[in-house]
Amino acid sequence: MSPLSSAPANATRVAPPLEAARSYPAKPADVYLFGTCVIDVFFPGAGMDAIRLLEREGIRVHFPQAQSCCGQPAYTSGYTDEAREVARAQLALFAGDWPVVIPSGSCAGMFRHHYFELFKDEPETLQQVASLSARTFELAEFLLEVCKVRFEHTGAPVRLALHTSCSARREMNTHLHGRALLAQLAGVERVEHDHESECCGFGGSFSVRMPEISGAMVQDKTAALKGSGAAEVVSADCGCLLNINGCFEKQGDTLRGEHLASFLLRRTTSASTGGVR
């Protein structure tokens, strides 16, 4: 069993609260990448940039081709049986001992926390769930805490705003990991913006079921981002980027957000690997 697989095999409750300390073993030679359905369909470049960032740190990245959704849209919409079957397929694909790196905090939170609830009545499956949970990392978290990256900024100075998915920041502390990575970059000024901790209105199926409320929320979010004076917007979650960028486009604004992986690959070198770009 992997040294990362520390959760008890007979766990029957949701994962420990975020305050619980996690141990980070040495940087592995191999990882899985779970690309997420939103990245696969709408932001494939962000997925490729995440792979390149990991490879730049000397890690071999494995991408099971049969992967699909984490099951979160069905789960949060009340379709528990359907979500369980989607989740069961992912458990089978990521059954090895390698860490699973996910460039989305909300999907990582589904793996790490909510699969326990989905399979609480299947004791025979909970060992797989516990192993996957212990091996799951959001991309920024993995780069910071496991790879111990040291990035150096390249290019002109820039003012940017960081948007993090509301579920990702509450379940995975994604905002802290993103801030810490950006703080390494001397040429980057991260600006605070109003409504930073609030939802952009996407919420997966929420934006379809309640479009008026979702639309009002993303209007507030884009107004706050524009009002911050940031020249660029980055996020660690492509679901949010899909909603925010769509609103910018509808408003006729030229400001666009990009995934944190794409920004880091484009604007940094890695001092931890001898400056390889």
Rank of each mutant, 00 (worst) to 15 (best):
A161T: 09
E122Y: 04
F119Y: 06
S167Y: 02
A161G: 14
K120F: 01
L126I: 05
L139Y: 04
P157C: 05
C107H: 01
T154I: 15
F137E: 03
C166M: 04
L93Y: 14
A83Y: 13
A156D: 15
R135K: 15
R84I: 04
E171A: 12
R112I: 07
G105S: 04
F151A: 07
E122F: 05
F137L: 02
E138G: 02
D121L: 02
H177L: 01
V100N: 02
R170Q: 08
L118V: 13
D121S: 08
L126K: 08
H153N: 07
H113E: 13
Q127N: 07
A95F: 07
T164L: 01
M172P: 03
A83M: 10
C147T: 15
C147Y: 06
E117Y: 04
L93C: 08
W98I: 02
G109I: 12
Y75Q: 11
D121R: 08
A130W: 03
E117H: 09
C107K: 03
P103I: 08
E138R: 02
Y115D: 02
V129Y: 03
F151S: 03
G78Q: 09
K148W: 02
Y79T: 00
P123H: 08
F116N: 14
F119S: 11
T174N: 06
F142H: 07
M172F: 01
H175Y: 06
E85R: 15
S77F: 04
S104T: 05
R170S: 11
G105T: 06
V100I: 15
Y115M: 09
Q128K: 14
E85F: 11
F116V: 01
T80E: 10
H153V: 09
V129A: 04
H114P: 00
H163G: 01
T174V: 10
D81E: 15
Q72K: 07
R84M: 05
C107R: 04
T154H: 00
V86S: 03
M110V: 13
P73K: 10
D121Q: 10
H114T: 03
G109A: 08
A83T: 11
S131N: 09
T76W: 00
A89C: 10
T164P: 00
E145L: 12
L162W: 00
S104N: 12
T174E: 11
R112Q: 13
E141T: 05
F137D: 00
A168D: 01
V149S: 11
A161Y: 12
V146T: 15
G71I: 09
L143S: 11
E124M: 02
H113K: 12
R169Q: 13
R135E: 07
G78P: 08
R169D: 06
L162Y: 14
V146G: 07
R135C: 06
R135N: 06
A83W: 05
S133Y: 00
H114L: 05
S77W: 03
L144Y: 13
G155Y: 11
E145G: 01
A140E: 08
P103Q: 03
F142Y: 14
R84E: 04
F116P: 01
L144P: 04
S167W: 00
A156G: 00
T76M: 05
D121K: 12
R159L: 08
V149C: 10
